[in-house]
Write a protein that binds this DNA or RNA. Structure first.
Lengths: 214, 214
DNA sequence: TAGATTGTTAATCGATTAACAATC
DNA sequence: TAGATTGTTAATCGATTAACAATC
């Protein structure tokens, strides 16, 4: 694999599309497709072929002119770029409805993510298991995170506890936070935060539908 | 309220920030804050004050120079812009872990969204209730959607059923789809689709963390 | 009035699209 | 070879940031 172009900064938009490429390639592979063009791939994802070629070109040359991309090879390359060949240990903080749902996904689809612990404060939940993963009291966070080498924390606690949970995760040594609380969390710059704000989707929908019907 | 500037097209990025403004204003109001500057609001949300003023200026003049924004008034205006003063009837399709979690949110935080029906195909689930909302068999979708004037459908079915569910929702007369299946769904242009692709978050996290640690 | 803060225009930055030479 | 499709440069489009006049 050719190395990515050294110091070039890659746009967030590009990075966010790579998982889509990866997943679609995987599906294609399972269908027995061995070669795919940027045109066909783009059609499946809903992205222009130029976009795909541009995105990929930031990392190297993965295709064959006049032919297309070898599905298997491109998948492997994108997987490597995304770091999906590694093993990531994750923990879920907060067993509400959403935390429970996420815990039950068990293996987050693109392999590599392993749920190693769940944290909560409810005495009724401590010591129980979801999908063979134990629920610990938050007070044991640092201990467990260190012991199990957990790098990513998922925040699914109620909004008012999100900031303190984030702070605890950072103190425990976590490197990345996947935040589902509808609030901005403040953490050091070295921590990578991805926020999912589910309420935005519905509200923006409301905006567009309002306009449509008059 | 001054009307929005007639034919100006408002960017998707702006629309997606309005719910954040709304929610933060609501929290501020609950704290008893009556006036807020773009600077303070931006600090709370993690957006520059210029961004906020620019976004709002697309719809009118809501502030007072040298003073700031009246929280209550700005909230009302943004709520009106987003159509949150309306009542939206929604239905959830697919009672897996995620569908179940969403059904239990009951009142989606910015009021106005009312869960009116849940659809599934599992005979064991049909006829049951989640939070006082009945689970119907998918075959009754058109009937129920019409009867209860449902405008928004939420797709939380497994990937392989997402497209057919979308098609059924459209045939039933739905106007917007909130799609949680990690796949592109094809629907007529008149239908507004918002997609939440939860797997992207973790994969992009993997990318950034890989780079960080070397 | 002086200080603060908005609303808006202009400048910059970044991302997408178009076009096409290179080449399989 | 002719046709197809990539990789990349240039052109366009859109969104953010900076600056500042207006005014409370």
């Amino acid at each position: 694999m050719k190395e990515s172009k050294e110091n070039a900064v890659i746009s967030k938009a590009t990075i966010d599309r790579l998982p889509l490429y990866y997943r679609t390639l995987k599906l294609s592979q399972e269908e027995g497709i061995e070669i795919i063009s940027s045109d066909e791939l783009g059609r499946k994802i809903g992205v222009t072929p130029e976009q795909i070629r541009k995105d990929l070109s930031a990392f190297g040359e993965f295709g064959k002119k006049g032919v297309g991309y070898y599905v298997r090879e491109l998948m492997r390359n994108i997987g490597e770029i995304l770091g999906l060949n590694r093993k990531w240990n994750i923990a879920i903080c907060g067993v509400g409805h959403l935390g429970w749902a996420l815990a039950n996904y068990a293996n987050f689809s693109p392999q590599g993510f392993h749920l190693q612990a769940i944290f909560d404060i409810d005495p009724d939940k401590i010591g129980r298991y979801i999908n063979e993963v134990e629920i610990f009291h938050v007070s044991r966070m640092k201990e467990i995170v260190t012991e199990r080498d957990i790098q990513i924390g998922i925040i699914t606690v109620p909004m008012e506890f999100a900031q303190s949970t984030a702070t605890q995760l950072v103190e425990a040594g976590i490197k990345g936070i996947w935040n589902f609380a509808p609030i901005k969390i403040n953490v050091p710059d070295t921590i990578h935060v991805v926020s999912e704000d589910l309420s935005v989707g519905l509200s923006s929908m409301s905006y567009y539908l309002s306009r449509q019907n008059g």
